[in-house]
């Protein structure tokens, strides 16, 4: 528990390295919503094979670690279908309208001092804080 920030920093450095490899190698921005969304609405076009390869590895590597006995196997996600469906729809629609999520606007945008990336990040963190506070008030906890 007390070293969670160290794991966070370490994991973050790996995420940043991954984003750097995709940028310097393929000239692409590593945005999870852009890569998946591009496949779903057809805007990925010629890049579809790369998008599929990226997503396959993104799913397979953590799954492999899980089966090798990693300690991080619990997502602790809510079991409420209402919350899961409403949350999923809002995240999917919102990230595509905004053209980015935590990785695209957050990591890739802020690191190049993109005004849109910084504004988007402030807005979604603000909305997230308000939502969690609302959940707490309504349900008396998470």
């Amino acid at each position: 528990m007390e070293v969670s920030w160290l794991w966070g920093l370490f994991g973050g450095l790996i995420i940043g390295t991954a984003a750097s490899i995709l940028l310097l190698g393929n000239g692409r921005i590593m945005g999870a919503s852009g890569i998946l969304g591009g496949l779903l609405d057809g805007t990925a076009r010629r890049g579809w094979a790369e998008a599929v390869a990226f997503i396959a590895a993104l799913i397979a590597v953590p799954a492999l670690f899980h089966y090798l006995g990693s300690a991080r196997v619990e997502t602790h996600a809510t079991a409420s279908p209402v919350l899961l469906i409403a949350g999923g729809l809002a995240v999917g629609l919102g990230t595509r309208l905004a053209n980015g999520c935590t990785s695209g606007h957050g990591v890739c945008g802020i690191s190049r001092l993109s005004v849109r990336g910084i504004i988007a990040t402030l807005i979604y963190i603000g909305a997230g804080v308000a939502t969690v506070a609302g959940l707490r008030a309504l349900m008396g906890g998470l």
Partner: peptide, 30 residues
């Protein structure tokens, strides 16, 4: 679009605690 989309994203993110990257990364054990 940027503002409305980011507000929607933040609400969904707060409701469940998952954003697109982790939603895919945890698929194998979620």
């Amino acid at each position: 679009r940027l503002v409305i989309g980011s507000v929607m994203f933040g609400i969904g993110w707060g409701l469940v605690g998952l954003c697109p990257g982790p939603a895919m990364a945890s698929l194998g054990y979620g």
